[in-house]
Amino acid sequence: MSKNGDHVSSILQTARTQVLAEGRGLDRDQLVEILQLPDEDVPALLELAHEVRMAWCGPEVEVEGIVSLKTGGCPEDCHFCSQSGLFQSPVRSVWLDIPELVESAKQTAKTGASEFCIVAAVRGPDRKLMDQVREGIKAIQAEVDINIALSLGMLTQEQVDEFVEMGVHRYNHNLEAAKSYFPQVVTTHSYEERWETCQMVREAGMELCCGGLIGMGETLEQRAELAAELAALDPHEVPLNFLNPRPGTPFGDQEVMSSADALRAIGAFRLAMPRTILRYAGGRELTLGDLGTRDGLLGGINAVIVGNYLTTLGRDADEDLNLLTELGMPIRELSKTL
């Protein structure tokens, strides 16, 4: 509805009943309509998405920190990624040692974050990485009160079981792109392989964190398709990334998506998944700037990554935390997420 109240897009009226009142997410075709809303309807969309988030998730915001345990040199070819060893990217390969890992977890916990995600640029873990992760988790658990999440690529059932036994709280593995667009984004593994790891993680009882990237040249239909596919997978958390075109990657020359499109996507993802933790992940600073963080948090987002990303820098953590205080959104406490 525009502010003067004389016009309500019918898809927003439908969403008000279907999503806000009944808690049923919009389907793919309905999401396409959302993504096509004219600019003047974006504020009404965000308002509705915010109401949906408040009604089905509450005012709390989940705060997470992430760190790269192994950077660069990945054998896969995800076209958006500066860590692939197959492109002429300036990112060089490097490993974080255990004391630095523990220190990163401590710094993250100090912000009030409840999750600390350890990430490695790999197709999937080998024995060396499994051992390094086991040692790292033990060291963190001995010193820091925080949930541990991992993002280490595709897993076997044995590896899933090992992580459950190590006490891993959540596992991140993104779909990255809609099924119909995936072959244009990655050629070294398939959408189905990603889907399989996600299923194994969930069946083993870990929380599943699964999201994707938008602004990679996909159509609006494909953007809606990704949201609908994620909704079908029903992850605990959905990180939403906006393409930050990286020098040397096949998507390095793509345009940065407009903030209006980014906000429409945030609204659409919330209306697709009323109950999920919808996290602002990479690229928000570039796409949305300072104001965008506020707009997103008032438009369906209920989780943020504080501090830096894996290879790029985030906003100052204190700025984000102050914004949450200003918006009256409490940080979700550790005990409540266990």
């Binding site: 490097v94 220190e103 990303y309």
Partner: peptide, 23 residues
């Protein structure tokens, strides 16, 4: 928004480590 990747003296690619509150 990101750390430098090249040395400004010799243009070698640097080994860059990003952590939550620094690089």
């Amino acid at each position: 928004m990101e750390p430098p990747r090249f040395c400004t003296h010799c243009r070698r690619r640097m080994v860059v480590q990003v952590v939550p509150r620094g690089w």
